[in-house]
Amino acid sequence: RHAAQRLAAAADLESLLEAMLASLREDFDVRHAMVLLLDGGGRKLFTLASCGYEQSGVGSEIPLGEGVIGVAAREGTPIRIAHMTSEYAYGRAIREAVAQGGEADRLETEIPPPGLAESRSQLAVPIGAGRRLLGVLYVESPQDLRFGYDDEDALVTLAAQLGLAINLFRDAAEGAAEPLPAQERRRRVAGPPVTVRHYAENDSVFFGDDYLIKGVAGAILWTLLRDHEAGRSSFANRELRLDPRIRLPDISDNLEARLILLQRRLLERGACVRIEKTGRGRFRLCVERPLQLVDVPAGTRP
């Protein structure tokens, strides 16, 4: 009941994710968890939030149908495993399964998925809205028999509430009619320039030699950086949804989730760029160092 009340009190997608993870820790004593969303192409899930791991794994990708998470998503049913050994640690098991299938290029190798080295209990629950899959809620534990039928029932119920709220916040953020403020004069920045490379082959973005992100999120970041170079700093979700440079794969792809992913990756990597929310469906791009943007044409892989 307390967890449901927490989710209902969330004001946006970011606070919804924080409420879900806090409830797992404090109401269910679950210390290791992830929330993954399905990308618009419907072939993989990306980690949007996690707790309890040394590395958050935000931005890591899991192919549909691979491992406990991928199978739960593909079949649309909860999967609960009570006994595990270290050889089934999630990140390693996923990599081995994909590599053996000859499809290693499907897996995001630059951002390892989080996971316990000694995971002995796992529970993956699909997140949906109506009949549409949105993602997966995943929890694990180093204890055998940690999750029972009651835990499964509770998380299925919360995942249903989570799915409805994700849909609601997506529509609210991308349908917001608040006008953009007048473009602010950009603050002059100092220091040695940072080279930012964008590879058109897969929309991967590097700050110097440090990999940041790829795919749709990479295309969004590159678009924002190019517009910032041209003098802009304020943006709206709605205009990004319609921007042909981003090539969002599907109208149902959650743009707000992509922006949260970008915001967290930029913060985790200590990049000189950050995203600040300025209102419903609006945000600001803040740049703290001079940037040298380099667009690498298609056909060249990083």
Rank of each mutant, 00 (worst) to 15 (best):
S60Y: 03
D105T: 11
S121P: 14
V35T: 12
A49Y: 07
V136I: 03
V58R: 15
V71K: 06
V71T: 14
A97N: 15
D151W: 00
A82V: 11
G91N: 09
I111Y: 06
A73C: 03
T85D: 12
L133Y: 05
S60H: 07
F46G: 05
A104F: 00
E108I: 01
D105V: 11
F28R: 15
S60M: 03
G52W: 06
H32F: 07
R80I: 00
I79Y: 03
G76A: 05
I94P: 14
D153N: 13
F46C: 00
G70D: 08
D153S: 06
Y138P: 11
T109V: 08
L133Q: 15
V71F: 00
D105Y: 04
G70C: 02
D39T: 10
S60P: 13
E96T: 12
E61L: 00
G67R: 10
S121L: 02
A104T: 12
E140N: 10
G41R: 14
I94K: 15
P112E: 07
I94L: 10
A129E: 10
G76I: 04
V98N: 13
E118I: 06
G40H: 12
S60V: 06
A97W: 11
A93P: 12
G57R: 09
Q100E: 00
A49I: 03
R25E: 08
D151I: 01
M34S: 15
G76V: 05
L137D: 11
G42M: 01
I111N: 15
V35S: 05
D150H: 08
H83Q: 13
D39V: 03
G130E: 08
L64V: 12
V71W: 01
V30M: 05
G57K: 12
E66I: 11
E54D: 13
